[in-house]
Design a protein around this nucleic acid. Sequence first.
DNA 1: ACATGTATGTCGTGG
DNA 2: CCACGACGTACATGT
Lengths: 235, 235
Amino acid sequence: MRIIVATCSAEYTGRLTAHLPKAKRVLLIKGDSSVLIFSELGSYKPLNWMAPPCVLNERWFDVSRKNGDKQGGAVAILKAHATKSSDRLVVRLYEIDSDESYDLGIDPGLMKDGVEDQLQHYLSEQIERIGPGARLVRREYPTPIGPVDILAVDGNGVTTAIEIKRHGDIDGVEQLTRYVTLLDRDERLSPVRGIFAAQTITPQARTLAIDRGFKCLILDYEDMKNQGDTDLTLF
Amino acid sequence: MRIIVATCSAEYTGRLTAHLPKAKRVLLIKGDSSVLIFSELGSYKPLNWMAPPCVLNERWFDVSRKNGDKQGGAVAILKAHATKSSDRLVVRLYEIDSDESYDLGIDPGLMKDGVEDQLQHYLSEQIERIGPGARLVRREYPTPIGPVDILAVDGNGVTTAIEIKRHGDIDGVEQLTRYVTLLDRDERLSPVRGIFAAQTITPQARTLAIDRGFKCLILDYEDMKNQGDTDLTLF
DNA sequence: ACATGTATGTCGTGG
DNA sequence: CCACGACGTACATGT
C-alpha cells in the first residue's frame, strides 16, 4: 500500500469520461496497483479510481531542467489502465506532501452476521411457519427469471412460492408476482400460491400483496433463531 | 484528513454486525470524522467504515503502566457513532506505524460526461434504429408516473414507448411495463407498444420483455456516436 | 425531507 | 466465467 498526499489532477475514461481539477488529495495505491483518490468529504466512494485488475505506469519529470513546463508543471504522471477493459486513469502530480509505502500483508477479511440469508435458512428449517403440514421443496428454486427464495408445498398439497425480504416493499411483491405467474404456467406445479415473508412489511406492499392474493408473513428473527437453537438440542 | 497505518481490529454494529480481526491496515479519517479501513486488496470499498454524519471518540492508553492489558494490548480505541442512527464502529489500535494529518481543503469535485443521457440523445436523433419510417414524438415524454425516455411513432403509425438503459435488467422491463400500461389507457395513443433498448440486456430481462410483447433493441454506443458525428458533418 | 432511478456501482453465490 | 440479487449500497435528481 502506497499513500501519496499531493496536489493532483486526474482524468478518467472508460464507461464515462470524467475530469478532476487540480487540488490537494490523498491517493491510495493498493498492492494490486488499483488507485483510489480521496478528498476530505464524501462517503467511502473515492472521487475517482481505477479498479483491479490494472497496470500502473509512473513517470517522473526533472523540473530543475525546466522541462517540467512541458507537463504543465506536473512533477509526475501516473497512468493506470485496466487489463480487462479500455478504462484508463491518468493522474498528474504537482506538489508532493507525502509519499510512503507500507506492506500490510494479507487481510483475514470481514466476518458478517445475520442477514436475509439467515431468515431464509431458518424459515426453510421451520417451514411449518407458513402453515401446519407444509413441506420444503427447496431453497433458491431456479426459474428462467431467477431463483425463488423458497419453494414449498402447503398442508393442502398446494405449491407455494415464498419471497423473503428483511424489509418488504413493493419491489419484493413485484418479484414474487413474477415468480408465481411463471410457476403457475407449469402444469405440474399449478396452482401456485405466493407468500411474502419479511421482518417488516410496508403498508403499500402489504396492500399490493393481498390484492394479488398473496399471504403476508411477518418473520420474528429472534423467535426463529431460538427455535433453530432448540431444534439442535433435540439431537 | 488523518491517515493512520496500524495493526488494528474493528467491530461494526448497525444494519448488521461485523468483526474485523487484528491485522495491519490503513485508516483514513476524513474531515467530517468519517472513518474508512482499507486493506491491500479489494476495490474501492473499505473493509469497514463509518459514514458521515458521525462523532468520533478517541482514547489512548498508557501501556507503560501495564494497564494496557486491560484493553487486550490495545494502545488506543477509536469509537465512531452515527448521529442519525445507532450505527457504531469501534476500532482498536495495537501497533502504530504512522499517524499523520493533512489539511486538504475543499475539493472542486468531479466533472462527469453523460452516459444514458448520450444513448437517449443519439437514439432520439437516430430514431429509425427502431424501424424504418419511425418518427420521434419527444424525449422524456411526461406521464404521471415519470417521464418515458423516448416516445415515438413507428413506421405503421403505432405509438411506441422506449425505455433506455445502459444495462437492461428485469427492473427496466417492469418500468417499461408500467409506462406502456398507463399510456395504453389513453385512447388518443392506444395501442401503445414498447421497446426495451439497452447496450446489454440480461437473458432474464429479455425473456420477460418478449413475454410482455416488447421488442428488445441492442444499442451500439460506438456506432451511434459515429453516426451522430457523421450527421454533424452534413452541416 | 422523501421517493426514485442510476452507478466506472461492489460483492457474494450458484449455475 | 456469466448472470443474478443483495448491499451498512452511495449518489444525483425531482417533488
